[in-house]
């Protein structure tokens, strides 16, 4: 299998003012390292409000100007520079945003879907294609002439997916596609994502919903306080926790209501108070002095990657 996208040591931070003269630095993503292969769904799992969306914005090159970005990204072994990002954005790599709030409320859906095209014949060609794709997703012809506020929740999601598909992308980044949807729509979204994979598109699914991640993805990358702490095959989440290596990943598995709802003491701090050393030390029962001093590197064990000095291997 070929590597499509490689993100190496990505960090994203912001310097912000918050009270009077005080300035603070917020490291939202500290060390994010992931690979995306052809024809796979990779879920990036992290708790809400953690700025996971910034990963998507970082790959697409649409971060705000006050963001400090470090690390390298490659698309098919070619370095993903700002120029390349701009070239690929919306064509080869496209985004399914969180909600219709990302659409312009004063513009008809079909014109937003095709984007701004000056050439009249090219425009008609695109519109035709847009109609085809909308049809494939069971969207009525009239939907194209609607405005965003007229869409129901389920329709909106389909519009966003079909819009992302319009330029035959190789990679789709789906940013939290499920929250706020009813059960039926969640199930439909899951089917749609798997369907995308079958069509030969690779998907990065950014989510905090572990159920959706398990049902759709091939691999899961677990994000904790801005660090990727484990990348594991999804099947390791399905039956038991034996092949999960990081203490947090194990705790996460055991904490699911269907797996025993087991209590782990400690708490997850805020991004302003990321501890020195291992990010998970506040909750970890295996920690030693070494963990408090230096962040463990991401190491390969079997098919997994894990960031821990004492991975739990059965």
């Amino acid at each position: 299998m070929n590597k499509l996208l490689e993100v190496d040591n990505l960090s994203i931070g912001f310097t912000q003012y918050f009270k009077g003269l005080k300035q603070r630095k917020l490291n939202v993503i500290s060390d994010l390292t992931i690979d995306l292969y052809e024809n796979e769904i990779l879920a990036v799992l992290g708790s809400s409000g953690s700025g996971k969306s910034l990963l998507a914005h970082g790959i697409l090159g649409i971060l705000p100007p006050n963001a400090e970005v470090n690390g390298l990204m490659y698309y098919k072994n070619e370095e993903l520079t700002d120029e390349l990002k701009e070239k690929l954005r919306g064509n080869t790599i496209s985004l399914i945003p969180q909600s219709v709030n990302y659409l312009n409320p004063l513009m008809k859906i079909k014109y937003q879907a095709i984007g701004y095209i000056e050439d009249e014949s090219l425009k008609n060609e695109k519109l035709k294609k847009q109609e085809e794709i909308f049809e494939r997703y069971n969207l009525d012809k009239t939907v194209g002439d609607m405005y965003p506020h007229q869409l129901s929740g389920g329709m909106a999601r389909k519009v966003l997916i079909s819009t992302a598909l319009l330029n035959n992308p190789k990679i789709i980044i789906a940013d939290e596609p499920t929250p706020g949807l009813d059960k039926k729509s969640v199930d439909e979204t899951i089917t749609d994502l798997i369907d995308l994979k079958d069509k030969g598109v690779s998907v990065i699914l950014i989510t905090h919903d572990i159920d959706t991640a398990i049902k759709t993805s091939d691999r899961i990358a677990i994000l904790y306080l801005g660090y990727i702490i484990e990348v594991t095959e999804t099947k390791n989440f399905k039956y038991n926790n034996e092949n999960l290596l990081h203490p947090y990943t194990k705790a996460l598995f055991n904490a699911l209501p269907e797996n025993g709802f087991k209590l782990t003491n400690g708490h997850q701090p805020s991004y302003l108070n990321i501890p020195k050393g291992c990010p998970y030390q506040d909750n970890c029962e295996y920690k030693t002095d070494k963990c408090l001093k230096k962040v463990p590197p991401l190491v390969k064990i079997g098919t997994s990657l894990v960031r821990c000095y004492y991975p739990i291997i059965n």
């Binding site: 912000q16 003012y17 918050f18 009270k19 009077g20 100007p65 006050n66």
Partner: peptide, 10 residues
């Protein structure tokens, strides 16, 4: 600017 830092964050 000083009293409303959230609106002027650069």
């Amino acid at each position: 600017k000083l009293l409303n830092p959230q609106t002027t964050n650069t």
